[in-house]
Simulated assay, not measured.
Amino acid sequence: MVLAAGVAGMTAGCAFLYGLPYLLPRLRADGLSLTHAAVLVACPTFGLLATLVGWGALADRYGERGVIALGLGGAGLVLLGAPAVSGPVALGACLVVAGAAAGSVNAASGRLILGWFSPAERGLAMGIRQMAQPLGVAVAAVAIPVLSRAGAFTFLAAGCLGAAALVAVVVRDPARSAGVAAGPSGSPYRTPVLLRLHGAGALLVFPQFAVATFGLVFLVDSARWDAATAGRLLAVAAFGGAAARLGAGWWSDRAGSRTGPMRILAGVTAGVLALLALAGAVGAPGVAVVALVVAAVVSVSTNGLSFTAVAEYAGPGWAGRALGIHNTGQNGVAALTAPVLGAVVTHAGYPVAFASAAIAAALAVATVPTLQLRG
């Protein structure tokens, strides 16, 4: 039940934090340029960046249940008021504040996995937890394109408030002594292992968000699909991504390593995105659509592996802060991906944007450290 409630909280938070790109067609119809609309949908991530380490420190000190419930509840209340504001600046400010509050679930829910599951179970458990991100995106992909702007924010607010109540009732914090420290004594940052994990995780977020943010508009602009149909296709891909995260976690438990499977999947991501860029450049829309769907699945598969590796190496005394730092790096890249690639698409086209994402995934292959599980 603890894991199920954690997944529900993550799903609701991720539907808001990472599902807003499905508002891009409506925002553009309201008169915003692609670049300006992309900045607006990135605003929750900018808020997230300011609070992740703080939420993680609070979870290390006071436990996970209160931190997650407080943050999701605050995000839901802010989102309820968002439709009442006027102008993109005011709306962006609301989204920044709501994103800052919703960051609690990113920082604290991963710590629950470290406390409640053994090393041989954590990969699968974290894979289940990390399924929430593509599941949240899938929910957003189906719901947001067919809702009004006000309806979309009300829908997302209801999800956050409902999940906050569920977490408050169901979740139990693990004993403070739970978990096994896998890393060195003292600060785990005395070695470069965590820094390499943070770097690889950040590099792999770039292709993930390149596809998540621009997949819909790519299908609309280049393949001439309507937004609702494109949203349904990407929702199916998001469910595939959820299954890929689950499978990657199970694989890492069996392999006795989080980083070995992570390196292989990063290489596959690079190859698929290179194919997508090439298909877009030569005008092969059928190949491009297939490559986009595969990229949407495989590009999200490594996230749970990096989270589990960070939590295990940091140990229970540092896991909240280390995951907060990891999340900050990942979401910093995510926040920049939308506006930067929006400008790239505007001036150079989709193939260049997807090629840059392939390069980032290839760099991650060389950055991932080699680690084996420790009991």
Rank of each mutant, 00 (worst) to 15 (best):
A343C: 07
Q372V: 09
R111F: 03
R28M: 15
A93M: 13
T367C: 08
H36Q: 15
A42H: 05
P21M: 09
L273S: 04
S301K: 10
V310G: 01
G375Q: 15
V365G: 03
C43D: 11
R26A: 14
Q330S: 12
A202T: 15
Y350H: 09
L197N: 04
R263G: 07
G317S: 13
L292E: 04
A228W: 12
F16K: 12
A15E: 09
V217Y: 08
R190I: 10
T346S: 12
L219E: 00
R224E: 13
A90Q: 09
S252V: 11
I264Y: 05
L77E: 14
V89E: 06
D60R: 01
V368Y: 01
A165W: 08
G54A: 14
A230L: 05
H198D: 05
A266C: 13
G240Q: 11
L17Y: 08
A361R: 13
A355C: 13
L80Q: 09
L58W: 08
G179S: 02
M10H: 15
A335K: 00
G136D: 10
V170S: 02
A279F: 15
M10R: 10
V211P: 07
A150N: 02
G66Y: 01
I128Y: 10
C14D: 03
V39E: 11
G136T: 07
V142H: 02
G151W: 00
A120D: 11
R254A: 14
G231N: 01
L204S: 14
G215A: 15
L194H: 01
E121F: 04
C160V: 10
M262K: 01
A237F: 12
Y18Q: 14
L246Y: 13
T308C: 14
